[in-house]
Design a protein around this nucleic acid. Structure first.
Lengths: 137, 137
DNA sequence: CATTCTGTAACACTTAGTCTTACAGTACAG
DNA sequence: CTGTACTGTAAGACTAAGTGTTACAGAATG
């Protein structure tokens, strides 16, 4: 699984605990243990999709832009990792019954799998994550 | 997604269409479009788990060892790709509430996701795959 | 005992993921 | 209107994972 997904969740959770003020990419990157530029890249994506707002300059940073219980993990999966389940099939032999049809079959199965995964991820909102973070260490 | 998974399915499907005779790793690798050694590595795993049998020497090769409708994709996933959904979290900052707890929360969510995926994959047996391969090109 | 196959280790190659540097653009503070 | 503190993004270096290839030992067959 793509780690952009987990970084996005991490960042959003961080922001969810600082709803009243802006957080810098430096602060978030320190919490997540990765380079600030990487966080900014992920945040840039989240911003593009309206989950957060950003402000440049002194006192700037990032802040949550939606309701906590309105954002779920499937939303985040879709923008960071859609298609990640899809296996990469090498070009197989068209002259063989198996080779010629396997790719089509697998793709349809994995599309189904991703939809199925979606149903599961939709059940977790950011509010749930925040609650889980606080619940017994 | 791990391509060992698709290679395993590909190989088993190939064998499923040759239930009466042995197939060589060369033949399967040609169908799948990858190197024979790679196929042998995957087949070696399948053999270890009793899905196929092998025989060395002239006229040797691989052959299916179970009933087609008794093997499902979840069985294959488990031996080739278990844990593939699990996101790799960089070591985050223990001094931060988010960093300290995020990993634990994500792991439990993804374990659930994998179980959920399992329920889906269990519905596809190798017999189903063979049928799909034959159905309208 | 030559041939044909599996089984596996070792290594080269390739690609994707990640880190880091660098710098332009924007906002604010004095 | 200039210095400082941020975001935004591109580009290159580095690293790890995946894949291809060669090599060779071991087993079955004729």
């Amino acid at each position: 699984m793509n780690s952009d997904f987990t970084l996005a969740i991490h960042s959003l959770t961080y922001l969810a605990l600082q709803l009243d003020r802006m957080s810098t990419s430096d602060a978030i990157s320190e919490s997540a243990g990765v380079h600030p530029v990487r966080i900014r890249k992920v945040l840039s994506l989240l911003k593009k999709h309206g989950f957060i707002k950003s402000k440049e300059g002194t006192g700037g940073g990032f802040i949550f832009a939606r309701d906590l219980s309105e954002v779920n993990l499937w939303d985040i999966y879709k923008i960071t990792s859609e298609g990640a389940l899809q296996p990469k099939c090498p070009d197989s032999n068209e002259a063989c019954v198996v080779g010629a049809n396997m790719q089509r079959v697998l793709i349809s199965i994995f599309l189904g799998a991703e939809e199925h995964l979606g149903e599961y991820l939709k059940h977790y909102t950011l509010k749930d994550i925040v609650d889980l973070i606080h619940k017994e260490k």
